[in-house]
Design a protein around this nucleic acid. Structure first.
Lengths: 122, 122, 122, 122
DNA sequence: GTGGTCTAGACCACC
DNA sequence: GTGGTCTAGACCACA
């Protein structure tokens, strides 16, 4: 299910992009599958159709979905573009940290620590 | 040198904070060293003095620098806080990626790849 | 074969027109040949029969095909019109580029480059 | 001057993109130059600021300009990206024509003819 | 019905 | 003041 968290400060349209990418990366949405229409999803999530349209437009320009006027939006053949997009922010954070002189080992330690924290939460 | 990238989307005051932290973490600025005055730095980087003042204010609040009225701003003890602040962003990126369902292994792979890329550049 | 690319932004009825013109220009369809019926083609390409009918209507209006009530649509004489229609788009793109201030020489360069690329693909 | 033609059927935001690209390609706008603010340009051209913002946003994602919140939009260092964008439609029209079996020579003839027509108009 | 475009007017952070 | 985001409601071509 595509969803958003209103308390999250990241823009809604970006939350939508990520949510769709997650569905694709997880295999819940596959090549050729039709996404809910912008209006439909907007009503479902209590959003303005324009906001959904913006998200869909961005996903299209990234080659993750394609839109057909009058028919709907469909997931494109994606060579892992969806999961790439999910790790986009992470990649730039890594670059930044490395540039700042933090060693790769330290970064990996941080990941392991947070990963354990997350397991505990379950 | 404290510097700014105008095309970077992160707010300028935050770029300033990070830049100062980087200098401290790298040892170019040491405990007790005096930072350039807000007005000085503003003129140098073509910025609004308020922006620099805001950055200095945040750094002081975080205990990374301290200000002496009429004399200027100086690097505080506890240099560790500076490098902590640098990895802050990285931590949140990790959390975000894990929440998005990316595995810790994948993230570690990305770090290793980027780390190698960086070595090659040398 | 008459075919359609759903991810292509040009309207489907126009894709149909061009596809038919291409068949004629290539000699795969000749004067007097019968086209598949609108219903037939619609089922084959998973389209709305109205869409196919619209395309056939336009082709008839342009004198490229003619319809005989109760019998079907047939390729008209004057095959030259088909290839004219194919270069129509190109002509308007040229006009657009020239209006935008691009020189004829630059455009010719682009053609030569793409033409070479295409040879290489073989 | 950035301008639009209301009688032109191509979307306004795209006309804006092209107009800016033309200014850059012609050298009237250079690296680092500031574009008119979205609101300013909107008032000037009798448009909605959102429409201008959309155009600016697209130019930014194409790396032709970059925006700084609170300051404005500036033309980026462009490796000819602006003129590439101007010929984008032309390139795809060429590909299409070549795929349809039209020879490069024929296309060049068409350009020469249209180029002459345009000269006559002067 | 769909997506695409446009307008109008609002709020926000940043400078 | 700037750009960025969001909402509301309108019109269009296409299917």
């Amino acid at each position: 299910m595509i969803s958003i968290d209103p308390s999250d400060k990241t823009p809604i349209f970006e939350q939508l992009c990520r949510s769709v990418c997650r569905e694709i990366a997880a295999g819940d949405l596959r090549e050729g599958d039709r996404l809910p229409s912008a209006r439909e999803l907007a009503k479902l999530l209590q959003l303005n159709p324009n906001t959904v349209a913006k998200a869909y437009g961005l996903l299209e320009r990234d080659g993750i979905i394609y839109s057909v006027a009058g028919k709907g939006c469909f997931v494109a053949k994606h060579g892992g573009k969806a999961s790439e997009k999910l790790t986009e922010n992470f990649r730039s954070a890594v670059r930044e940290a490395l540039d700042a002189g933090v060693s790769a080992e330290e970064l990996i330690e941080i990941i392991k620590a947070q990963s354990k924290d997350k397991e505990r939460e379950r």
